[in-house]
Structures are given as structure tokens and as C-alpha cells.
Write a protein that binds this DNA or RNA. Structure first.
Lengths: 257, 257
DNA sequence: CGACACGTTGAGATATATCAAACGTGGTGG
DNA sequence: CCACCACGTTTGATATATCTCAACGTGTCG
């Protein structure tokens, strides 16, 4: 139930039903949270980790002027701060972007899993490394791409990650964030993001309105973002087999925002 | 011997002598490599991981034009591609920056450790998450800082990481990289890096000549880079206790380049 | 209906890129 | 030992992407 989407379609690290049951058995609370709530702040010791069941969350660092740089965006199925388990405290803040449903797992429960199940422990480790791989692609985005490229790259990534959990069909998906959020993701100002979005829209590549992303030309979008999806370690084979895209879910997510 | 520096001074995750011995027992080969050698390429399956004993290495992604974006710089004591153990294949290339000495550990040896020693396994996991935390600080650097800030932030980080393994005294350290490398780290052109370095030098903040970094004004350097070292999870207490800085080692490293 | 958040647009300022060339310097071979 | 080469550094002039500041539009919700 909570773990339905966790590590789904990830190459060589999908969970067995038994492993899912083990993690679900560790869940101690399920909560819903409002949009734009801070969930954890840097430096505080954490005793639980958070499984994102529904909605979008992010992690970010603040600069001196209080401006945020997002360092991660999380989609349903992500173990948002599993890294807090070995690390004990976070080096960044964590917040909701949209309204979310989360399940929390006490670190004590993870202790038991890691103790008894080296194979499952390795899959949990793997999942934190997936986040690191996403960080690296994000570094590429900021360091080597221009504004349009950064947006394109981010949208390609998000599309694929959502496809992996059945929340995008590759053409349109609900993404409950604002242009200002996008600017904090891409290291740009919201004014410039706005101009870039207009140009991408006018070129017939992609549009983003009312929290709905519509990809009109996937090939040119990938091209603009110099996007190579290898770093997501998604099993394309099993992804292709997936047919049950849930068109209703996207709309629901939009409305809930 | 090989692991002398691994996880040294890292909060809550330093190795016991026995744990060091376990990892060292797993080392199957020790090699020296020339500067600017590619060590591993993206996509290939890896059966070993690399412990950096001496010298500097990096990991990077290529853009369409063949320009590199560095995503990690490694200093002695780092387990450079430990993440290849759970991930199996890398999403980026790996190369030497200077001449290096490395020790390789077969993944089969890590299997045994992870199987038998959950506590040590957790420390290995921790060490890969340290890299992820460094990625995040790097994202902040690229997304929120101007050119001088990026350089300053990187130098602050590198100074501290080298201090943690006894290779900097906080004032000067050997860093065998070029201005072009710095530009690939900071997402800038080498021409602009040059101008920024001149300005930092003329302001009496830091100089970087012949692969030697000299920090003239640590406080202003931190200030320029908006540097907060929390993400390095270094135990300041034990670091302060450290007195045995090796001034000779730095010079040697310069010459070896 | 009015307030507020989000999106859009314009004009001008600024940081960084680009292109091109010259300069130093350590290493190498004649 | 000198000449030269390769590599990294430095500098100048010009181009361009993105930022800044400021204003206005638009939809949603109380």
C-alpha cells in the first residue's frame, strides 16, 4: 500500500512482496500535510524517515539572502529522507510542495531490517544512491545547460520518474509547482523562467499551465535538455510493459494543490 | 595503511581498527596511475570499487559538445566509487586529476562485509551519503553563487576535507589541478576563472599558483562562498585535537603532479 | 467584490561567455 | 647548454544571457 511505488521499475532493485511487507510493517504513522509546510530542518536529529505516498515534496538549501536552491524534488514512491537514517541529521531543509500523504518509518524499525536482511538493506542503500545520481544530473543541468536546457532537462527527468510510478503517460502529467519553484530548481529568476517557458511553448515543445505539463514534442525536449535517462536506472523493459496509466490521478493531484 | 584516512574525523562513523583491517583485507590490488587517466566509464558494469590512497581524482559528465561538468573531486582517503557497489554501473565517468595511488576492493569482498557486519555496512553506506551531501552543497554553489562565490566555496570545502585527512593546515595546501579544471568544477569558462582568481588574489583573500592554494583571509573566503561546513559532517572536536599537519606532504604532492 | 498569489511583459544593468592573441615556464631533444 | 615545444596562464575587446526593478494582468477564493 504505502510502498506500492517504492523502487518500482528500478533496475535490479525492485522489492519482493515480502520485502514490501517488511517495510510497511515498520510504518508507524500516516499523515497528510498542507502545501508548503516545512517538514524537517537542517541540523536537527531525526528518528524517523519519510515515505512519500502522494503529492510532491522538496529539499533545499538557503542562501544568505534567504533565497532557496532546491536540491531534490520528490515524487510519490520516493523515500524522501532515507539518508537521514545513516546520516542521523540532515544538511538541508525539507518541505512539501503540494498537499501530500506521507508514511513515517522509525529508524529503530530500519535497524531491524538492516540487521536481519542484508539484501533488503542493500536495496535501501541503492535507493539513496539513486537520489545521489539525480543530484549529479542536476549538477550537469546547472553547470552546463542554458536556461531553456535546464527546464527541458528537469521536465524530461520528472516525466520519466512519474512514468515509472504510473503518474505520467509521457505526454502530460500533473506537477503542482509554480514558476517560482521552477526557478529555485534551475538556479534562475522566476522572471527568466517565465520567458523561457513562453519560448518553449511558442516553439511547440512543451507547455506548463495550471500545474499541468504537456509535452508536445518529446524528442526536441530531450534534445534541448541533452537528456540521457541512464542515470535514473529505470528498467525500460518493464516500463514499456506498463499500460495502466491512470489519467484520473493526475487531475486529482491538480485539484488537490 | 590504505584506509588510514577513510572516514577519518567523520562524525559518528569513524572505523574501529578491526573494521579497518576488514576492509584492508578486501583489497586485491594497489596501483599507481598517471594524471588525467580515465579510470571508469559510464554504463560499464564494475566488479571493484576504488579507494584513493594518494592524489586527486574526479567524476564528471560530458555535455553534447564534449565539455565536462565535474560532479565530484576526491581527496586521499575517499572511497571514490563505492556507490558502484549497490548501483553496479556508474552514470558518469571517473578519472585521475593528478598522479594517484589507488587500492581496489572487489565487490565480492564487500558482499562478505555487508553480510556479516551490519554496523560496518552502515558506515559504508554513510560514506556514500557524505558524497551525496557534497553534491548538494555543490548544487547550492552552482545555483546560488556568483563566480567568485563558487570558487571560494569550493576552496573552503577542499581545505576542510584536506584538513580532515591531515593534508592542509587551513592556510595552504597542494591542489594539483589547473584553472581549466576549476572552471569545469564551477560551471564557468577558464577565462572567467582566471579573472576571478586575479580578483581574489588582489583582494588578499586567496591565491592559487603552481598548484598551491594559499588562504590569506579564511574568514572573508568563507564569507564570499557563504560557506557552512555542516554538510561535511566533520567532527570539529577531534579535528581541533589534530596537530600533526604534514607540511612536507603537500610539497611532495605538488612535485608529483 | 476585493485581496492575494501567480503569471506576464518591458527597459535597462550586469555578469559571464566568446574569440583571439600573447606570455611564462618547465621539460625535452638536439 | 640552448632552442623550442607544450601547456597553462593572462589579457583585451566584444557579444550575449540572465538579472533587476517595476508595473500590469489574471484567476481563485473568501
Amino acid at each position: 500500500m504505502f510502498t506500492d511505488r517504492f523502487l518500482r521499475h528500478r533496475l535490479g532493485a525492485t522489492l519482493t512482496p515480502e520485502e514490501r511487507a517488511l517495510i510497511e510493517g515498520g510504518v508507524d504513522r500516516v499523515k497528510t500535510l498542507e502545501p508548503r509546510q516545512t517538514v524537517a530542518v537542517a541540523g536537527r536529529r531525526l528518528s524517523h524517515s519519510t515515505l512519500l505516498v502522494d503529492g510532491f515534496m522538496c529539499r533545499y538549501l538557503d542562501d544568505r539572502r534567504g533565497l532557496r536552491q532546491l536540491v531534490a524534488v520528490h515524487v510519490p514512491g520516493d523515500f524522501v529522507d532515507l539518508h537521514a537514517y545513516p546520516l542521523q541529521k540532515l544538511d538541508h531543509d525539507m518541505a512539501t510542495l503540494t498537499a501530500v500523504t506521507i508514511a513515517t518509518v522509525p529508524h529503530a524499525a530500519l535497524d531491524r531490517i538492516v540487521q536481519d536482511r542484508p539484501e533488503l538493506a542493500r536495496k535501501l542503500w541503492y535507493s539513496t544512491l539513486l537520489d545521489a545520481a539525480i543530484h549529479r544530473a542536476w549538477l550537469f543541468r546547472l553547470g552546463r545547460l542554458d536556461a531553456a536546457g535546464r527546464v527541458a532537462h528537469f521536465l524530461c527527468e520528472t516525466d520519466l520518474r512519474l512514468q515509472a510510478v504510473g503518474l505520467s503517460d509521457g505526454r502530460r502529467f500533473a506537477l503542482g509547482i509554480t514558476q517560482a519553484d521552477l526557478s529555485e530548481i534551475c538556479g534562475l529568476t522566476s522572471v527568466h523562467i517565465n520567458r523561457v517557458m513562453r519560448s518553449l511553448r511558442e516553439d511547440g515543445i512543451v507547455s506548463f499551465r495550471s500545474a499541468l505539463v504537456e509535452i508536445h514534442d518529446p524528442e526536441r525536449l530531450r534534445q534541448k535538455g541533452e537528456f540521457d535517462p541512464a542515470y535514473l536506472y529505470i528498467d525500460g523493459q518493464s516500463l514499456a510493459a506498463e499500460s495502466a496509466v491512470e489519467p484520473g490521478a493526475g487531475e486529482a493531484a491538480i485539484i488537490r494543490r
